[in-house]
Design a binder for these strands. Structure first.
Lengths: 267, 267
DNA sequence: CGACCCGTTGAGATCGTTCAAGTAACGTGG
DNA sequence: CCACGTTACTTGAACGATCTCAACGGGTCG
């Protein structure tokens, strides 16, 4: 049941460099028929209404949208991994969120607003693109819709707060452990039956650094010691959890909470 | 950030002098008239419907709600300042957001969910409390409501991403400058006419540290140098901006963006 | 087979923390 | 209105976590 399609195997034909640049020209995702390689309950991921011809396939390394663009549509991720990130003028980069299938991206903050962050495909990705007008119409038909949307956004905010706490108050070791644990549990929540303790994480050590507020050099050192301690083994984008209990401990997560993560079913 | 000696030895647990206690008695008392009084257009802040008897007044230092509580109502801040924060088990604290009048707090991430953060009144505060049931009913009456709510939440997420970028990728000096600039512009957006460059910020240096991921000692040093350089003067909760241009420069904010902040009218 | 990423390791510099000992403002009760 | 206790702010010295710079090794792909 392990999904080859989900693997970052064919990653980025040279799109990902040490300092990924902003993808200026945007992307030219071709329209695409409903996907293969999706998790079991694909339809559950369609929080948002389906738009005719709205599915797009985007290559790894490309941006789905970029900071400063005026918001004309919102995106519902159907498959693949996406990094939401911001840039400082001198090139420093912060990955603020990893979007997994089911995620909603690009919700406008007000009418005609510009997004204040960018979204980069980490793997090949399929998104459902819903123009704002379609969304507005759909929410008239289905009054519950925008409330579900609001809940999803509240979830995003909560996750952002959690991530922020990690960056602001945890040590490097704790941050890395916390991120790996988070990604592992979120990923696993998508295949509830699966008992594997190994997964493909389509991230370089530099991207882990960008997410945790560290340099890739230091991420490497932390990962090395975690490996020597036989807690986790992360190498060339494959993650193996060797000692879940100690990982939870290092991550500084309440075991209670950690277990609930293993249940939860949210993007 | 050493693992153990996190709590000042000798001090009884729960009596941490510097660490504000969760909830409990709270140091009610001081009120900060300047920053607390209701802005001109109070009604504009009622993004959410008014609930009969729903207005509550809360003393400075108290928690509006705490992590782990089951979510039964959402809050619309009418006046005063609120800190949204999280705690790690050993007492490390991260302030993830400062809520100003107009803010919506405590939106549930799913039915019957628990909030994953706490909210502490920094000044005396007035909030409108809207039970979930009332919200649901109101959103049936006013289909636009939940869409406006979703936009407000998207705004929260954007702000969280911005703050996270600051903590993860900026130097201490940049972080402090950025926070002061942000608070100043958000505050000023509430009194559009006002031309003052001085304001009361109801924060201690420790709270600034908790928001920026620094220790209060280092916050103090940064503020000292900013004062010596005649950029900003922050002393005993009063902020005076001496050199706006250089502050914008130090904060590493695009002047273009900074100016737009001075226009924007959002909590 | 040759490029090109990506990962690894060492040495030294730096930024921010920790610990410690003050001083200044505030608030309270006499 | 003053004395006192408390909280907030300030400063110095030493330490250490993380960064920077630099060189090299390993994997993968065209």
């Amino acid at each position: 049941m392990t999904r080859e399609a989900e693997r970052p195997s064919g990653v980025a034909p040279g799109e990902l460099s040490r300092r990924p640049k902003r993808d200026g020209d945007g992307n030219d995702g071709q329209t695409w028929a409903p996907a293969t390689g999706l998790p079991p309950s694909t339809d559950a991921y369609r929080l948002l209404p389906r738009h005719r011809k709205g599915d797009r396939k985007i290559a790894a390394g490309r941006d789905l949208f970029s900071i400063g663009e005026t918001n004309t549509a919102i995106f519902n991720l159907l498959s693949g991994w996406v990094a939401i990130y911001t840039l400082l003028e001198d090139g420093r980069r912060q990955i603020v969120h990893f979007a997994l299938p089911g995620a909603v991206m690009g919700m406008p903050t007000s009418k005609g607003a510009q997004v204040s962050y960018s979204a980069q495909a980490l793997t090949e990705v399929v998104v459902s693109v819903i123009p704002n007008s379609v969304l507005a119409a759909a929410s008239r038909d289905d009054p519950e819709l925008s409330m579900r949307l609001a809940s999803a956004l509240a979830r995003d905010t909560s996750m952002a707060y959690d991530h922020m706490t990690s960056i602001g108050r945890r040590t490097a070791r704790e941050r890395v452990a916390h991120l790996l644990l988070e990604l592992f549990t979120r990923y696993r929540a998508q295949w509830p039956g699966d008992r594997i303790e190994e997964m493909a994480i389509p991230l370089t050590q530099e991207q882990i650094g960008d997410a945790t507020g560290l340099t890739f050099v230091h991420v490497n050192r932390v990962l090395s010691t975690l490996r020597k301690e036989k807690i986790v083994h992360f190498h060339y984008r494959r993650l193996r959890i060797l000692d879940p209990d100690r990982l939870i401990e290092v991550a500084g997560v309440d075991p209670q909470t950690a277990m609930s993560w293993f249940q939860r079913r949210s993007p």
